[in-house]
C-alpha cells in the first residue's frame, strides 16, 4: 500500500466527512437550546411537566444512540411513519445530545456556589436579575467546556449513522472497502479522517477551558 493510494482513500471519504459535520451541527443547533429548555423545565412547579421532561432525558441518556437511531428509522414505520435517513438521524442525535447536555447544564447551575445566591439575595436582586447577572454567567463558564466536549463526542458518533444508510464517513468507507477489498487501509483512512477533526478540536477546547477559568 503506497502513500498516494492511501491518501486517495482519504480524499474519497471527505464528502462523507462533510455530511458528518452537517449532521453534528444540525443536531447540536437543535439539541442544545432544547437542553436549556429541559434544564429549566425540570424544576417546574407543574408535576406533569417535570415527569415528561425527566422521562425524555432519562430515555435519551439511557438508551444507546444506536437504538434511538433504529427506533426512528426502523421503528416508526410500524406506525406507518417513514423517515429519511437524514431525518431519522437528526431526530435521534438531537434527542441524545439534548439529554446529555441537560445534565451538563443542570450540573453547572448547581455548581455556582450557594454563597453567590446568598449574596445576590442579600443585595436585593430579584430572581430574574439573579439568574441573568450572577448565576447564568458563571454557570455558562462552567458548562461550556463539557458542552464542547460533548459536541466532539457527537461528531464521533455520527459514525453510527452508517447503519441507517446515511452517507457519512463509515458508509463511504464501507463501500470503498467493498470496491477495493483493501479494508484495512480504508478503515485506517476513516480513522485518520475522524482524528484529523477530533484532535485539533479537543486541543481547542482545552485552550478555551483554560481561558475561561482565568477569572473565576
Amino acid at each position: 500500500m503506497d502513500l498516494t493510494t492511501w491518501l486517495g482513500y482519504v480524499v474519497e471519504l471527505l464528502p462523507g466527512l462533510w455530511k458528518a459535520i452537517q449532521l453534528t451541527v444540525i443536531s447540536l443547533a437543535l439539541g442544545y437550546p432544547l437542553a436549556l429548555l429541559f434544564a429549566v423545565l425540570m424544576d417546574s412547579k407543574i408535576a406533569p411537566i417535570r415527569w415528561i421532561i425527566l422521562v425524555l432525558v432519562e430515555v435519551g441518556r439511557g438508551l444507546p444512540l444506536l437504538v434511538l437511531l433504529y427506533l426512528f428509522y426502523q421503528g416508526l414505520p410500524q406506525l406507518s411513519i417513514v423517515l429519511s435517513a437524514l431525518a431519522s438521524a437528526v431526530w435521534a442525535f438531537t434527542w441524545s445530545a439534548a439529554a446529555y447536555a441537560t445534565e451538563i447544564i443542570r450540573s453547572s447551575l448547581r455548581s455556582v456556589g450557594g454563597g453567590q445566591r446568598e449574596a445576590a439575595n442579600a443585595i436585593g436582586l430579584d430572581d430574574r436579575d439573579q439568574f441573568r447577572f450572577v448565576i447564568l454567567p458563571q454557570a455558562a463558564r462552567i458548562a461550556i467546556p463539557p458542552l464542547l466536549g460533548l459536541a466532539i463526542i457527537m461528531f464521533q458518533l455520527t459514525s453510527l449513522a452508517y447503519v441507517i444508510a446515511y452517507s457519512e464517513v463509515m458508509q463511504s468507507a464501507y463501500f470503498l472497502g467493498t470496491k477495493t477489498f483493501n479494508y484495512f487501509p480504508v478503515f485506517l483512512a476513516a480513522a485518520a479522517v475522524y482524528a484529523s477533526v477530533t484532535i485539533p478540536a479537543s486541543a481547542l477546547v482545552t485552550g478555551i477551558e483554560r481561558r475561561l477559568s482565568r477569572h473565576v
Binding site: Q156, M170, F184, F187, A191, A195, T198, I199, S202
Partner: peptide, 23 residues
C-alpha cells in the same frame, strides 16, 4: 490515549474485525 479516544469506537471495531482479517 489521544489517538484511541479521537476515533469513534465503530471505526476501531471495523478495523479489528474487517481490517485485521486482511492481515
Amino acid at each position: 490515549v489521544d489517538i484511541i479516544r479521537s476515533v469513534p469506537p465503530l471505526v476501531w471495531l471495523f478495523i479489528v474485525y474487517f481490517g485485521l482479517a486482511e492481515l
